[in-house]
Design a binder for these strands. Sequence first.
DNA 1: AGGAACCCTTGATCCAGATCAGGGCAGGGA
DNA 2: TCCCTGCCCTGATCTGGATCAAGGGTTCCT
Lengths: 262, 262
Amino acid sequence: MTFSVAATAESIAAVPVSIPAPAVVSGSSAATEKGRCAGCSVRSKGLCAALPAEELPELSAASRTINLLSSTPVVLEGAEADSVFTVVSGMLKLYKTLPDGRQQITGFATAGDVIGLAVGEAYAYTAETVTASTVCRAPRSALHRLMERRPAVQARLLAMTSVELSAAQDQILLLGCKTAVERVASFLLALSRRSRPLPDGCPSVFLPMPKVDIGAYLGLRPETLSRVLRKLEDAGAITRLTNDRIRLDDAAALEATATLAA
Amino acid sequence: MTFSVAATAESIAAVPVSIPAPAVVSGSSAATEKGRCAGCSVRSKGLCAALPAEELPELSAASRTINLLSSTPVVLEGAEADSVFTVVSGMLKLYKTLPDGRQQITGFATAGDVIGLAVGEAYAYTAETVTASTVCRAPRSALHRLMERRPAVQARLLAMTSVELSAAQDQILLLGCKTAVERVASFLLALSRRSRPLPDGCPSVFLPMPKVDIGAYLGLRPETLSRVLRKLEDAGAITRLTNDRIRLDDAAALEATATLAA
DNA sequence: AGGAACCCTTGATCCAGATCAGGGCAGGGA
DNA sequence: TCCCTGCCCTGATCTGGATCAAGGGTTCCT
C-alpha cells in the first residue's frame, strides 16, 4: 500500500541484483505452483497476509514475478489499469505529472506495498523503480474474484487503503502548512520510524532515491533540500554518513523542528 | 466520504435552518423506527446506498440524527473515535492542526459524505460545520457489525475510501506543484463539476465557507485568494455574483490556467 | 586512462506569495 | 438608529524558497 514514507528497503543494498534484460519474468516456471507464493518473502505482508494457505496455488498460477532494473516504469498514469502489483523487494516512486512536465511524487513503495489499484479504468499515477526491484503482477480480475470469495481480503485492502489515505492527509498537511526545514525533519523522522537503528543505537534512514526525487516528494527543489540538510547537519541534528544514509543524532531536536503533529 | 471538493451543498441555502439549541438530537422519537432511514434524503448516497431495505430498522435504531448550527465541531482530532457520521445536509470542513495553530483543511464534506472513519483509536482530523448542518451519528461498532454481515457495505466503504484517496493525491499534486492561479482555477472547476449550471447555461459554484477556509484548503492566504479571484475576474474568466457564488464565464480559459491534469 | 553523464553542493539573485496595514461593507445587538 | 464585529478587499513591503550559475565527485563506458 505505498506507505508514503517507508524504508524497509534496507534489503536492497544487501542483495545486489544483476539482471541481463530490462525485465525478467519468472512465472510458474522453475518454482512449483504452490511453492512460489508459499515461500515468498512478502507472504506475511500486504494483501497476501490476508490469504489463507489454500488460496496459494491459484494465486501462484495467476501471478507472475518480475525483476526490474532501476528507472523502469511499472504502471503509467492514464493507461488501462488491468493489473495490480505487489512489491517484493526494492523501491518504487509513484508520481503524477502535469501537462508541462512538472512532477509530484505522491509516495514511495517498498516490500509488501500494493501498486496499481485504480478507482476507474485508468491508473491514477505512474510507478517507476528507483532501485532494481522485484514486483509480483496479478490481473485485476483475479483480485476482484479473490475479494468476492474472501471478505478478509477485502477487509485487508480496506485497511491498507485507509492507512494510505491517512498518510496522504499527513502529506497534505506537510505540503500546505510546513516550511522547508519542517518538511525535511518530518520526512526523516517518518522514515526512521520504519527502519532499524544503527548498532550504536542512533536511528538512521536509507535514501536510495536521488535528491531530486525526495524534493519532488516534499514539494522542494533539490537545491533547497541540500541546503536544509546542511543546516540540520551544522546544527548537530543529523550526520550524512554516505550519500544515501543519514544518521539522526538528535531525534528530539528534529521532532521539535518538525513542529510535531505529523 | 468527504469528497475533497463537492458542492451539492446548494440545498443549504434553500433550506433555511432555524434551531434553538446548538445541537438538537432527533432519534427514534417522532419518526417510526423504520421510517426514519427509509425516508432519509441520503438513503441512496454514501454508505447507505449499499444497505438492503431489511437493514433499515436496525440502522434506524442504532443511529441518531443531529442538527447543528454553523461553526460547531463534530469530531476532534485526537479524540477517541467511537462514532461515525453521515452528512445529511449542510457542509463541514475537515482539518488538521499543527501545535502552533496552523491549520490545513483537507476537505469539505457535503450530503452523503461519511465523517469520522479512523484507522486507529483516534480521529485523524477535526470536522466542524461551515453552515448549519444535519448529520447522522452511528456507533463505530454498529458499522463494524454491519460490514461483517454485509460484504456489500464493506465494498462500498472501500470504493468510497479509494475515491477519497485519489482526491487526496490530486490535492497533493495541487499543493506540491501548482501556482496560486492554477490552484484556484482547479478548485473552481472541481466544484463546478459537482453543481448544476445556472439557467443561462454557465456553470457556477456555491462557496458558503469563508475565504480564509478556501485559502486553508488550497494552501493560500486569504489575501492571495482575493487577488487571484480579482485577476480571474479582470480576465473575464469568472464573475463574482455574490460573496458566496461565482459564475464561470470561460471554463475553457480556466481549464487552460489550471494546467489541466486535475 | 580518458571522458561523458549524472548527481550533489554551494553561491548569487529573483520573485510569488506571505505579511503588515488600512479601509469598506453587511449583519446583529442594544 | 448607531455601533460593533466579522469578513472581504486592496496596497505596500518583506522573505522563503525558486531559479540561475558553476564547480566537484562518482560511476560507467570507451
